[in-house]
Design a protein around this nucleic acid. Sequence first.
DNA 1: CCCTTGTTTCGAAGTTTGTCTAAGTAACTC
DNA 2: GAGTTACTTAGACAAACTTCGAAACAAGGG
Lengths: 121, 121
Amino acid sequence: MSKLLKIEDVTARECCAPLNGPVLGEEEAAELAQVFKALADPVRLRLLNLIAASEGGEACVCDLTGLFELSAPTISHHLKVLRQAGLITGDRRGTWVYYRVVPPALTRLSGLFALPASIAG
Amino acid sequence: MSKLLKIEDVTARECCAPLNGPVLGEEEAAELAQVFKALADPVRLRLLNLIAASEGGEACVCDLTGLFELSAPTISHHLKVLRQAGLITGDRRGTWVYYRVVPPALTRLSGLFALPASIAG
DNA sequence: CCCTTGTTTCGAAGTTTGTCTAAGTAACTC
DNA sequence: GAGTTACTTAGACAAACTTCGAAACAAGGG
């Protein structure tokens, strides 16, 4: 068991309840807030975007680091935040670590903001 | 293009570019991060949920305040943050202030997290 | 083994955020 | 006008977050 890449899965419960649906409980709201806190940073948004848009659906940290004027530890920290929010996963293959998005986590968020066509129009 | 759309094609417009689409610029990422910062709080998530799920699509502040063990100024502060993020709007009608969600803002977020079926499956 | 690349942890600035109390504005009623 | 209710703004403060540098840790190649 590698302590390196463990994540805390916060997306396991109700996958797609919309925002205009049932009332959020306190603990559910706190859990969701943690996910948005992970997204509430320009660097992390760009990291997630770069990973999601990567060829083959995965990106090596070695490629990501050079795109920011931040130290390697800082990039690593941001990736860890995204990982703990359940938005991405990483696995080490040889010297490098590759990250990819967790589709159910993103789909859950997409469903959260979905509105009925009668309102969205 | 000019066809009747019951469901909005959220991937077509620039406002709703998906996360796995074009690379986010720094400004765009910063602006999006501001929206997520507004969502990154349990109280604000519950407020947004309550407003979105309200009968008639709007909720009076007087009804919201009683649902939290927080002072009125604190609730007002959170509503202001949501308002400044463009997620809700409020208007005063007589003594009371009513808030409702801004559908395009939510639809944009829904589209942001939308994934192609090939990945999302 | 040592060396290189890449990641994580730790501790210390500086900044931001959530909450409060107190004071201010807006509208209704007498 | 004065008083009451509803909501917002202003100022202050503790808690949390961001970022960095230095150092430790992991994996592979010579």
